[in-house]
Design a protein around this nucleic acid. Structure first.
Length: 158
DNA sequence: GCCAACGTTGGC
DNA sequence: GCCAACGTTGGC
């Protein structure tokens, strides 16, 4: 039911995992998220087919660079159980995992990056979680009218 | 590299 | 269960 489709935004540092990396890989699991709010969304709310704005953080300028989509709903993040992994969590137990991932698939690059400054200046995007002061969520919901506005700004026709 | 924002941890 | 200390994020 398309009425149930939700929209999301994920942040990634391009030096760590860029949209080009996702394009190369096709799909990936969105690992390493260690924030409970973001975890809950991946575990409970992100559904197959949901569209995801792809944001590059810690780069100059930061901004939205393209689109991905959810292709596998929440399951335990394998990196939490791997003691050699940066994201290892010794407190997480296999029978009661603490952290979850979804699988995302590359959809498209936008023709140009929609930089953060420009997004802040667009009145149609007022209230977007991404633009709230102090926001540090790396996975967040996006309202449909904000999502559509971002596609319009990107000149993205699908 | 700085630092504001804010989530988590741990002593009490 | 409070809250200070600490760690991380991420814009600048």
């Amino acid at each position: 039911m398309s009425d149930d489709r939700r929209y999301w935004l994920v942040k990634s540092e391009p030096d760590v995992y860029s949209l080009h990396d996702l394009e190369r890989d096709g799909t990936t699991y969105w690992d390493g998220v260690r924030n409970y709010q973001a975890r809950n969304m991946m575990r409970d709310d992100m559904k197959t087919g949901d569209l995801v704005l792809y944001y590059h953080s810690n780069t100059n300028p930061p901004g939205i660079v393209g689109l991905a989509k959810v292709v596998q709903e929440g399951y335990p993040d394998p990196t939490q159980f791997d003691s050699n992994d940066k994201h290892y969590d010794p407190k997480s137990k296999a029978d009661n995992p603490r952290w979850y991932v979804v699988d995302v698939e590359f959809v498209a690059h936008f023709d140009q990056k929609l930089d953060l400054q420009g997004l802040k200046e667009d009145e149609a995007l007022d209230g977007m979680i991404l633009l709230r002061k102090g926001n540090r969520l790396s996975v967040m919901p996006v309202e449909e009218h904000h999502f559509q506005r971002v596609l319009d700004l990107a000149g993205y026709a699908g």
